[in-house]
């Protein structure tokens, strides 16, 4: 199966189930989770079912195109289902069958893997899905986003596309993946890897980046606090986060400063989350008025339609509970 067919198969699978298929976000993000389609839409009571391919940039993973497994930029296939369908595991398993992994021929397992993003104030519980010992998907039930409890809970599926493609095509290097017949990943992205790695690891201007970080941070705050424009503000939160990643990859952030930077990015994300929720509330949570769901859903929530949940939405934030000690 060509890389392109893998993308199309996944898109079709989730489209048929009722997801909207959108494009990956057009700003630099480190993961599909950071795109507004996941981070912002996981918040609040409204349903949201989406699938998109997100090119994800991780400056510190840049290897100049020399490492067969690590990339400056890889592709994630991101699915967010909210509320999480009751049969979400089955829907997921159908998707891997669709691209040719038969659970009777491979050892498919759901192995505990909880996820936390300190820069997003987000966390979730779930699994990494193994195929013969290889992680092919990150499967997460969102518990928290921007510091807010997720109600209802969304299920997030993140497929590592390059890995799956390497597996399906039986190649040892990401650069040997055939995108379409006769065209390899190398031809499309190798130079991108070389240049981006050179920039991120050697050539970036730390002073400039620091300045950008500060400007983006300030602009994010201004837009949210003074102008009540959470969507453009979030763009600047993302730029801020990428500037931080670039600084980090350059080794320009000391251990002691690191926590401070992360907190600044998280604070911005939290402001955007709050602004977004207020904006949706003002609009009357419009998607709650639709009957848009995917998969099997609990018909009612405590005797009321699930979409009534918004009436009780609370802006209160709960403290994180530490893992309970036993014995």
């Amino acid at each position: 199966m060509y890389f392109q067919d893998l993308l199309l198969t996944l898109q079709n699978h989730w489209a048929k189930l009722g997801c909207i298929v959108t494009q990956g976000y057009d700003l630099e993000v480190g993961a599909g989770t950071m795109a507004p389609s996941t981070f912002l839409h996981a918040l609040g009571p409204e349903p949201w079912n989406v699938a998109y391919i997100q090119p994800s940039r991780r400056p510190a993973d840049g290897r100049f195109g020399e490492n067969p497994n690590r990339l400056f930029q890889h592709h994630q296939f991101q699915v967010l289902l909210k509320p999480a369908p009751k049969n979400v595991q089955e829907l997921y398993l159908d998707s891997i069958k669709a691209f040719g992994i038969d659970p009777l021929e491979h050892d498919i397992r759901f192995v505990e893997d909880d996820w936390e993003s300190p820069t997003l104030g987000a966390s979730g519980l779930g699994w990494e899905v193994w195929c013969d010992g290889m992680e092919i998907t990150q499967f997460t039930y969102f518990q928290k986003c921007g510091g807010y409890e997720c109600k209802p809970v969304a299920a997030e599926l993140t497929y590592g596309l390059e890995r799956i493609a390497m597996y399906l095509q039986g190649v040892e290097s990401v650069y040997d993946i055939e995108w379409v017949k006769g065209v390899k990943y190398r031809e499309i992205f190798h130079e991108n890897e070389v240049e981006m790695s050179k920039y991120a690891l050697h050539e970036s201007d730390a002073e400039q980046l620091e300045m950008l970080f500060k400007s983006y941070e300030a602009e994010c705050k201004r837009l949210i606090v003074e102008k009540e424009l959470p969507l453009p503000a979030y763009d600047f939160a993302l730029k801020c986060s990428h500037a931080f990643n670039l600084l980090d990859a350059r080794g320009a952030i000391s251990v002691t400063d690191r926590a401070g930077y992360i907190k600044r990015v998280r604070d911005n994300a939290a402001l955007c989350a709050e602004g977004y929720l207020k904006m949706r509330q003002k609009l009357g949570w419009p998607l709650c008025k639709t009957s848009w769901t995917v998969g099997e859903q609990l018909p009612m929530h405590e005797g009321k339609p699930a979409s009534d949940m918004w009436k009780t939405f609370s802006f209160e934030k709960k403290e994180d509970k530490k893992e309970a000690p036993r014995g």
Binding site: P83, A84, P85, K86, D114, L125, Y141, Q143, E149, C150, K151, P152, V153, A155, Q297, L298, H301, E302, A306, M309, K321, E323, A324, R326
Partner: peptide, 13 residues
């Protein structure tokens, strides 16, 4: 049941 980590899912409280 006192799970080391508790989780919520879907619309469930």
């Amino acid at each position: 049941i006192n799970f080391a980590k508790q989780m919520r899912w879907g619309d469930v409280e």
